[in-house]
């Protein structure tokens, strides 16, 4: 991309003629059907990210027809300029071929206004804008840009400085009329785990134990500490725990001021390979092998006896996580609440 970005990005086009050239592209590909449910914009500052994201868009388009806008920004480039390419991703479904279009921009130089313009000028009208921001968030945050986004996607696992970045995310959440839905792929990744933990307590005999949890143990992959912290935050918020930090030692207190200790252990394997909740003599464990598609969910204790079950663990591959996020729609009302419960742990 740095020298010849045209390699797999389709046809280079003049920025002012993109829609016309797209029209020609559709004429040239015959009786295939153009389909689009969303505008999917992706912002990256990584040259390697261009090819990776083009592959990802192709995978996403097979299940989620979209107009994809890939933006490769080079804020450090000495001269300002914008280049563009167009491409189509076609997939067979129900004996027909359906195609999604991709517009790729390379934006050179530090030019937030160019970014705003190329995005807004090339949206498929009336369709929601899902924007995956793969770069770091930076101030100043322009409300005219961020509040136009319907679903702002990011991955807090990729951040070097989660405390600062989460702070900026919370600012974005409060810009303008705050209709933007924040979609942290790290939160999405935890969905199967949260469902698995909730599943234990759908059992009426296990439910009382939820109020007596005294220990949480989480094992996470290297680099996935924020995932573990978000999971802790969700548990704490839902169960009414508050974080108690004394001389660098952290623990939670429940509504009766009883202490809940926790441990975050790092081990190679799945993003979260194990989560165990202990409530007196009762234990509830979700355990996942490195390549496993399922959590082994086991519980034992005096109230419910012993039982075990396999529950879907989802997959950690990024396109599957993104597809899951795009398929679920709706808001994530608990995300910021969970986050604010454990903010001190992010430092």
């Amino acid at each position: 991309m740095t020298d010849d970005p045209a390699a797999n990005l389709g046809f280079p086009v003049e920025v002012g003629r993109i829609e016309k050239e797209l029209g020609k592209l559709w004429e040239s590909i015959g009786d295939k059907t153009r389909a689009s449910l969303i505008n999917l914009a992706i912002y990256t500052e990584s040259a390697a990210g261009v090819a990776r994201n083009t592959d990802l868009i192709s995978q996403i388009a097979s299940e989620h027809a979209c107009r994809a806008i890939l933006i490769y920004a080079r804020p450090e480039a000495p001269e300002r300029g914008v280049r563009a390419w167009i491409n189509a991703h076609c997939h067979a479904a129900n004996k027909k071929e359906f195609c999604s279009e991709q517009i790729t921009f390379q934006i050179d130089g530090d030019s937030p206004s160019a970014l705003t313009n190329v995005v807004f000028a090339h949206l498929d009208s009336d369709l929601p804008l899902c924007f995956w921001w793969q770069g770091p968030f930076r101030e100043p945050l322009d409300p005219r840009f961020w509040t136009w986004i319907d679903r702002l996607i990011f991955d807090s696992n990729a951040w070097d400085d989660p405390a600062t970045q989460f702070g900026l995310v919370q600012k974005i959440a409060h810009l303008g009329d705050a209709r933007t839905v924040l979609c942290d792929l790290n939160w999405t990744r935890l969905l199967s785990l949260r469902q698995g933990l909730a599943h234990f307590f759908d059992n009426a005999c296990a439910l009382p134990s939820l109020r007596r949890i005294d220990r949480v143990e989480i094992t996470h992959a290297p680099g996935a500490r924020t995932s573990a912290i978000l999971l802790l935050g969700w548990l704490a918020h839902q169960l009414g725990w508050t974080l108690d930090s004394v001389l660098g030692r952290h623990a939670f207190r429940d509504r009766n001021h009883a202490e809940i200790t926790f441990s975050l252990e790092e081990a190679r394997g799945a993003c979260i390979s194990k989560c165990r909740l202990t409530a007196g003599e009762s234990e509830f464990t979700l355990d996942r092998s490195a390549q496993g598609e399922f959590y082994h969910a086991s519980m034992h204790g005096p109230e419910c006896g012993e039982s075990s079950q396999l529950l879907p663990a989802g997959r950690d591959r990024i396109h599957e996580t993104l597809l899951m996020e795009l398929s679920r729609a709706g808001k994530h009302p608990l995300y910021l609440k969970a986050l604010s419960t454990v903010t001190p742990l992010l430092a």
Binding site: R194, F201, L207, Q238, L239, H332
Partner: peptide, 12 residues
């Protein structure tokens, strides 16, 4: 009444 009282089900 598991659904009504399981706080971990909220939003899921």
């Amino acid at each position: 009444t598991a659904k009504a009282t399981n706080p971990l089900r909220e939003g899921l």
